[in-house]
Each structure stands twice: as C-alpha cells, then as structure tokens.
Design a protein around this nucleic acid. Sequence first.
DNA 1: CTGTTAGCGCGTTCAA
DNA 2: TTGAACGCGCTAACAG
Lengths: 337, 337
Amino acid sequence: MKKRITIKDIAKELNVHHSTVSRALRNDPRVTQKTREMVLAYAREHEFQINMNAVMLRGKANNAIALIVPNINHNFFSDIISQLTNLAYKKGYVISVFQTNEKYQQEKEIINTIVQHNFAGVIVSIAKDTVKSDHFSVLRKFGIPLVFFDRVCEDIIAPKVRVNNFEITQQSTECLLERGFKRIAHFTGTQDINVFRDRDRGYRAALDKYNMEYRNSQIITDDFSMDLGKDIFTKLWDSPDRPDAIISSSVHLTLGILLQAKAYGIDIPKDLGIISFGTLLSSIIIQPSITSIEQPENEIAEIAFELLENMIIRDNQEDELIEREVKAKMLNGDSAR
Amino acid sequence: MKKRITIKDIAKELNVHHSTVSRALRNDPRVTQKTREMVLAYAREHEFQINMNAVMLRGKANNAIALIVPNINHNFFSDIISQLTNLAYKKGYVISVFQTNEKYQQEKEIINTIVQHNFAGVIVSIAKDTVKSDHFSVLRKFGIPLVFFDRVCEDIIAPKVRVNNFEITQQSTECLLERGFKRIAHFTGTQDINVFRDRDRGYRAALDKYNMEYRNSQIITDDFSMDLGKDIFTKLWDSPDRPDAIISSSVHLTLGILLQAKAYGIDIPKDLGIISFGTLLSSIIIQPSITSIEQPENEIAEIAFELLENMIIRDNQEDELIEREVKAKMLNGDSAR
DNA sequence: CTGTTAGCGCGTTCAA
DNA sequence: TTGAACGCGCTAACAG
C-alpha cells in the first residue's frame, strides 16, 4: 500500500499547521484568502484526496447507502438498482449493492459488514431463504435506518414499500376465468415470503369468487429458472389433470413454459392462457403476445429512497408503521403496441 | 447517530485493558482461555461490531472492491455484476457497484469517491462518454489496482479483459454475406470506444473481403434503446437504398427493429437478415428465431476478478501489458433448441 | 499473559 | 488568523 499524501504532508511543505490546512480545504472562513489559495493549489497539484476513514472515525455521517437484493441480474431488481443509484447520486449519496443469492446466511453476513462499515442506511428486499429476522435487529441497535421493499420482514418495524400483489393476481386470475379458462395453475415461490403469499391469496380469492377448484392449482418452486419452468410445465401438462391456463410469478419460469409449449405445438392462448409477472421485453414481438404484469420499478425505487433519506436526515428510526403500496398493472400483449 | 459499543467499553466493563479485548476478539494466542471467553461472551451478548473505519485508518487493507459500469440494468453488465459479486463473496471481498450512466463526469467523481474510501481495487468498463483518461491515473498514484473489462482505456496501463469483437463481427458479417445478403447495415455505438470500433472494423473487413459496398452501412447511435432502434430502422427501411440485413450491437436496438419489422410485415430472415449482439433470451421462442452473438459474461467476470485479486494480494500494479481475450460465439436461433 | 503507550488522518476544541 | 493539543477506535510494539 502506497503511502498517501495527508494534510500533515501539505502542512509541513507549506510551513503551516495541519489544522490550518484542514480548515483551508473545507473553506472554513477563518483562514486567509492567500493561505487558502496556497493550500488548495498545492492540494490540487499533488492530487490530495481526503481519507474518509479518518473523517468517519471522527463521527461524520457516511454518505454510502447499502442496497441488498436477492439477485442483481433479475430485471425487476436491476431496474430498481439502476434507478436508486441515480437518485442517490443526485443527492450526494453512493449506493453499494449486495447480493444474497436468496440465502439467509449471506444476508446476515452482509448486514454485519454494513454495520461494521458504518453505512448511512439500508434498503433491502429479503432472500427467499430468510424466515428469521434477528439479523435486522442489529441495524436498529446501531441506529442504522432501514427500509424494506417488495419482499419484507413482517415482524421488523421499518418502513415498507409493497406491491399490490394480492389485488393484481386476483384481477389477473379473474381475467382468465372470464375468458373461460377453468383449470388455472399458479406457478409461484415460497409461501414464507409476503410477495408470493399475497399472490397466492389473490389467486385463491378469484377462484373462490367464481366457485372454481383445480387440483394442481399451486405450484411452488424454489428457484426461478427457465429450465425449471420447462420441467414443471412438462410434468403438469402430461399429468391427468392438465391445466388450461397458467399464472406465472417469474419471467424465467414463463420462458420455460413458452419454450415447451412451442415444442408441444400448444396453441397460445387457445389451448393455454398465460399471464406472467415481469416485463417480457420481447413479448411485444412474440406471436402470440402474452399478457404481462408490470411492476412500477421506478416508483418503488423513488419511494424507498425518499423514506430512507428522511430517516437519515432526521437521524431517526421509525417507530410507527409506515407502509406504502404501489400498483402493478396488467399489460395485454396485443394492446402493447 | 447512536453511540456504538467499543472495545474500550468492553474493557471498562470487564476490568481489563482494551488492548486485551482487542487481542481476545482477534483470537490472539497470548490471552488466557478464560479471558478470551469472557470477552467473547460479553461481545456477543452486547452485539459488539468492530469499527472498520478505525481498522482501516490504521492501514489494514480494505476488503471492498469497486465495480464501475455504464448501466446496471443491461443484461451484459448485470450478469457480470452478479457473477463478480459471488466470486468476491467466496474470497471474502465485498463488491460495491457504481453506475456512470455513460457519463465521463460521473465516472470521474466515482473514482474520487473510491480513492477517498480506500477501496482495495477497481474493475471498470468505461462510459461511452469517456474519451479522456486522466481520472484513472489517480488510482495508480494511490496504488489502487485497476482492471478494465470490455470497454477499456487504451492509454492506461492496466490489465484488460477484451471480447473478440473484431473477429466475431467479421465472422457474423461473412455469415450473412454467404447467405446471399448484399446490403448489410451495421447498428453500433460510438467509435470512441474500442468495443464498437473493433466491431465496425470486423464488419468492414468482411465487406472488403467480399468486395461489397453499401452506402448506408454504418449507423452509429448514442443510445441503445428500443425506441431508437425502431426509429432508425424505420428511416433506413424507407430510404432509397434499403438494407437487406442488419448487424446490431444491442439487444434493445434489435427489439426495436423486430418490432417495426413486424409492423411492416417484413419476412425475417427472407427479406431481412438479422444478427444481434446480446442474449435475446426469448429469441428461442420468437418465430422466426434470430441469430445472436453471445458473450461469455461469466468468463469475463472470472478473469477480471482473478487479475484484480492477484494485484491486490501481491500489492502490485502491473507495469507490463496484460491483455486477455475471451470469445463471443454465434448462436443460431434455430439450433438453439 | 496483560498493561502502557503511541499513532493511523482528520476536525475541533482552546489559546495565543 | 493560526497553532497546539486532544481524541475518534483500533492495533502494534514494547514493557512488565
């Protein structure tokens, strides 16, 4: 590690005290115009860069925000990351992104790292694996503001940004029912997570409303991958009680379904209705277009950031329950153009 | 900001010296079993978390690596981010992701932040906007290891991971020529960036080899968006010298092209051949499938990380020119299944 | 085995 | 207006 230039180095070189240099660099008014210019010139010339570790050790607030997501390379999350990064940049914050790979253990270690490095705040969407929530309490203990989005811990008091999963899934299911589908399967994730639980509740509410039942109704997958979607769909399709429609919680599962449907020569939507969460960018050019459920990623990012920034500025942890809900929308493939 | 518990607090409480606490926490052998256990128990109970700012101020190496990309929400980059984050995690590093939005100014400010926070190393793919490279020299000055991937600064001495853009674009163009296409347009990015420059050189090399010329050949876009792809294609298609094939540098441009082609009722690939960079996930279900050029994101991440880790471990900045090239592959849509 | 001391780089006293 | 001294939390060197 190269030795870096410090304010003391500058002070020695210019025959002033390092506290004077410190003041000059921060534009403290009680320093001569001349001295300041001398210091600034020297600093610029020698590319002085302040050591933030020293600054923060003295208690100055960090300007780094931690963002924790299960997967960086899912569009839903990468869109939110991108937007949050831009918002933060405008306000002088820096976002560090962490990926849990859906693992509780990694999530926990990440939280510790965040505490140890004095991050200013944390925005998180929890792992599928996360059923305990003890690791979040340490943030509260250390006074680090926390905001949940999308996938939340129900038993931790912190602001939460939710998507209207119940409502939109109910609506989507009803849409299929109204189009005459009778055996609708629901491909979704673990029921430990609010998002997938809410979606399944919405799905069942719609079935109940129409007095429908379907034996193979709920299919829970641990993983959202194209291959898994393909496999699950294949089994289901070849089973005695074949579905005539599917609601899918993930673009990747949907791609697997579509792929296999194509191999089987299944006519969509005649023989198989599909509604899928997630923006299937190319659904607009797929023949036939499928209906997708679009989530407002930018709005989620904006609200989450706003909530967190408020807490950071007011040096405050919320004790009341702040919940904000944003609305996903159904986008019919054929009307997308 | 809440006051956090420190080793001194623990020391006072247990009537030992804080240096003893420090040793106990780090499992220094020269501390009694009993003392250590006492300290560890107390620390665990009170959720002590070490203050990394203090540790780093003393000179200990940081375990945080900075990753700078133009856009987090492009699949090429988000795949690399995801993979890098996992590799880093296994080795005990943490990745912080920064987004330049293709702006030189942001890139520069990010570099300063990185220096100020003493990051252990930097992995970067530069912004389209970045024509100067002065801001990278500060990293060298401060002894922070640097690795470029994909989009590189030619005049900075640092390890570079490149994709065989020249070769693969030449090959793709020849592929189209051999299939009988004669007026092939090239949709690509600014020629200030090695990636797009290399692709265009490969494209032209193929044309030259076949003694072909095409007036509208090179179309440079500032931005890679679906809308722009659609607009540009529309203009081109309606021009007197209509293309019969396109090589596209971006999935988003390609989607725009496909969308408009569909609206025009253009038969692909009979009336319009298309080869596109980027994994068009759903190309496997698009009818007709289009040929894509797949880049080895995981391999890029692995090599970049390995190169950087070597420099970090050896506390070394490379003076020799390390260049590694990875190979993109053409993937024919119809053989993808 | 444990305590003492010093210092990492900076900002904030308090004094001059 | 500037300087001197101190301390943020931690670890290394040295002393006991």
